[in-house]
Write a protein that binds this DNA or RNA. Structure first.
Lengths: 206, 206
DNA sequence: CTCATCTGCGACATTGATGTCGCATTCCGA
DNA sequence: TCGGAATGCGACATCAATGTCGCAGATGAG
């Protein structure tokens, strides 16, 4: 059984979220095993990080699979596209809670394989964004590649806001989503916020 | 004269923007001096990073000073507030070009003094955001502390998008601004985009 | 010209972290 | 019960990066 291997991964994930520069020794301690044991399971610190990074990309991919991304994109159905976008982002915010450190970890971001795979997944996601533009859901004025970056940036923002205690973990998804979709300006005059996330409006009782 | 000291700082800034984990040796090489010389000017690698971080905070502070932040906030004048917000963000995007690495550098982000000063500056900025809410410029539904994070996140996004070549450096500011203010959804039907940045719309001829 | 100061550098010392190795212990299946 | 495969660990070896020290050349005021 890989019981302890998973324990190490879990500990690493927890530890790195607090201190992204944590050493193998720190991680081993958090996992309650010796440093050598960590090295039995992972050839190097980088290998450990790469595995975590891979898992975070797995989650991303699963989110897109689960949402049937290509089918929804091809459907051209504005409502479906819109709903999928929202579901994806909510999912990402949730995942960021676990793998958030991977968003900005330099070791992970420098690994060629992960970078390549990230690119492929981003391309795939961009397909949805572009379809969303065609369906009138997303602004046609923005470059297709930008959307993914915007999502990424707001994930980082949400994570940081929660980490610093500026927003409650529960609020994060709504904030990210509202900001992403509608921006931060006040809804123009009295018009109903037709572009706000469908679910609970931020500020409403949770 | 501190000629070479400045040269080291400049080299560090350049080098770190490419490889955030660059060693003192890397920086020294980029500056065309020996490693020991770097250490003559900066007690430690951390001290060097802290100085760069300090300078980036100086810029932030200067932007707020230059915009007369408190006066504008107190004025309650929606147009002035709105204009200042836009000017600030444009300024930040420009600064991120130079000090971008500081946005996510773990050494800098872990330094107590810099964190404390960042907090103070963020509080100051939040004053403007809250005034903007009162003036009807920013959404009253969002928590005051969120705005700063949203700006931060989109700066990271813009920086990354430019770094990866997904958007032209010239476009970055418009993209960040539009996304921040109006989000990424298509303007609801045919209504004039009353909340879009006042200057050049993204996509318009530069 | 001369001394004092500043700047730079090569060589050394130290440190923290990484990764390896052989031995002990546990956990099965036969 | 027995044997081997897997797991864990302490101790060691290595390495990369940091930081220190004393000497050498430049610079500049007097």
């Amino acid at each position: 059984m890989t019981s302890n291997r998973d324990a190490v991964l879990a500990a690493a994930q927890r530890t790195l979220n607090v201190d992204p520069g944590a050493s193998v020794a720190d991680i081993a301690q958090a996992a309650g095993v010796s440093r050598a044991t960590v090295h039995r399971h992972f050839e190097s610190r980088e290998a450990l990080l790469v595995e975590l990074g891979t898992r975070s990309l797995d989650q991303w991919e699963q989110r897109m699979d689960a949402g049937d991304l290509e089918a929804v994109a091809a459907s051209g159905d504005a409502a479906r596209i819109r709903a999928l976008l929202e579901a994806l982002v909510r999912g990402y915010v949730e995942d960021a809670d676990t793998y958030g450190f991977a968003l900005t970890d330099h070791v992970i971001l420098a690994n060629a394989d992960l970078v390549a795979r990230t690119e492929r997944l981003a391309d795939r996601e961009t397909g949805l964004f572009v379809a969303a533009q065609a369906a009138g859901v997303l602004s046609p004025a923005l470059p297709g590649r930008w959307f993914g970056h915007a999502v990424y940036g707001l994930l980082v923002a949400g994570r940081e806001a929660v980490r610093l205690g500026d927003v409650a973990p529960r609020e994060a998804a709504d904030l990210v989503l509202t900001t992403l979709f509608s921006g931060i300006t006040a809804p123009s005059s009295t018009a109903p916020s037709s572009t706000a996330p469908s679910s609970t409006a931020p500020g409403a009782p949770a």
